[in-house]
């Protein structure tokens, strides 16, 4: 029961991430919504699934999966953002400042 609720909360975060992907104005902000909500979303989902099944070695597998998500997810989103900035994809109109372009 608790596992199901936690998994549900995780999926809500994933849903909000998808919604953010549609609503955000430019590539950088979309990345914020799209790549980050997956961290907490999939973490909660995995923990929920582990609580639901809760036998054998499920916990060690879940810990390992969370570790791999935590280590790989930021690297891919950083690489995407950096590449987007390198090929000069324009930022949204609301953008307040851009220190990186100033320094280059």
């Amino acid at each position: 029961m608790i596992g199901a609720i936690i998994a549900l909360i995780g999926s809500i975060f994933l849903l909000l991430g998808a919604l953010g992907l549609l609503r955000m104005p430019d590539v950088y902000n979309r990345m914020q919504a799209g790549t980050k909500s997956t961290t907490l979303g999939s973490m909660l989902f995995l923990i929920g699934a582990a609580l639901y099944i809760s036998k054998g070695q499920i916990w060690s597998r879940v810990i390992l999966l969370i570790l791999f998500i935590v280590f790989t997810n930021p690297i891919s989103s950083h690489a995407l953002a950096r590449a987007a900035h390198k090929i000069k994809i324009p930022m949204a109109e609301e953008t307040v400042k851009d220190d990186l372009t100033e320094d280059e």
Binding site: H78, A81, R82, H85
Partner: peptide, 14 residues
């Protein structure tokens, strides 16, 4: 840099 990227709202670009 990874911690900053993992917390939503901030993303390390360089």
């Amino acid at each position: 840099a990874n911690s900053i990227t993992l917390t939503p709202g901030t993303l390390t670009a360089e």
